[in-house]
Simulated assay, not measured.
Amino acid sequence: MPTTDPFHALVLMNAVFASAAWCLARPSWPAATSLSVASILWLFFNTPIEGAVLYVVDADTGVTESDFITVAGLVLAAVTIARVRRGQRGSSPTM
Score class of each variant (00 low, 15 high):
residue 27 P to H: 00
residue 76 L to K: 12
residue 51 G to R: 08
residue 3 T to C: 08
residue 1 M to Q: 08
residue 11 V to H: 04
residue 20 A to S: 11
residue 16 V to S: 01
residue 3 T to D: 13
residue 19 S to M: 13
residue 61 T to G: 01
residue 29 W to Y: 13
residue 84 V to D: 00
residue 58 D to Y: 02
residue 77 A to N: 09
residue 72 A to S: 07
residue 31 A to E: 07
residue 62 G to P: 05
residue 32 A to D: 03
residue 12 L to Q: 11
residue 15 A to H: 07
residue 38 A to Y: 06
residue 79 V to T: 12
residue 54 L to C: 08
residue 68 F to E: 04
residue 83 R to P: 00
residue 17 F to D: 06
residue 22 W to T: 05
residue 48 P to T: 07
residue 66 S to H: 08
residue 78 A to C: 11
residue 41 L to F: 02
residue 66 S to M: 15
residue 29 W to A: 12
residue 90 G to C: 05
residue 90 G to K: 09
residue 93 P to Q: 10
residue 70 T to V: 09
residue 58 D to K: 00
residue 63 V to Q: 02
residue 33 T to H: 02
residue 51 G to D: 04
residue 93 P to R: 12
residue 69 I to F: 11
residue 4 T to D: 03
residue 24 L to N: 00
residue 68 F to Y: 14
residue 11 V to M: 15
residue 59 A to K: 08
residue 21 A to T: 07
residue 89 R to N: 06
residue 72 A to M: 10
residue 39 S to Q: 05
residue 44 F to A: 12
residue 80 T to G: 05
residue 50 E to P: 02
residue 63 V to D: 01
residue 12 L to R: 11
residue 76 L to I: 10
residue 80 T to H: 03
residue 87 G to V: 03
residue 53 V to H: 06
residue 81 I to Q: 01
residue 47 T to M: 10
residue 88 Q to F: 08
residue 65 E to L: 11
residue 8 H to G: 11
residue 95 M to G: 10
residue 62 G to T: 10
residue 37 V to E: 02
residue 6 P to A: 05
residue 5 D to H: 08
residue 13 M to A: 13
residue 48 P to N: 04
residue 72 A to C: 09
residue 79 V to M: 12
residue 62 G to F: 12
residue 45 F to H: 06
residue 29 W to T: 11
residue 68 F to W: 15
residue 84 V to A: 03
residue 9 A to M: 01
residue 17 F to H: 12
residue 23 C to Q: 02
residue 88 Q to C: 06
residue 4 T to P: 02
residue 51 G to S: 07
residue 19 S to I: 06
residue 60 D to R: 10
residue 75 V to Q: 00
residue 54 L to H: 07
residue 29 W to H: 08
residue 41 L to P: 04
residue 21 A to G: 10
residue 77 A to V: 10
residue 19 S to C: 14
residue 86 R to L: 14
residue 2 P to C: 06
residue 53 V to Q: 14
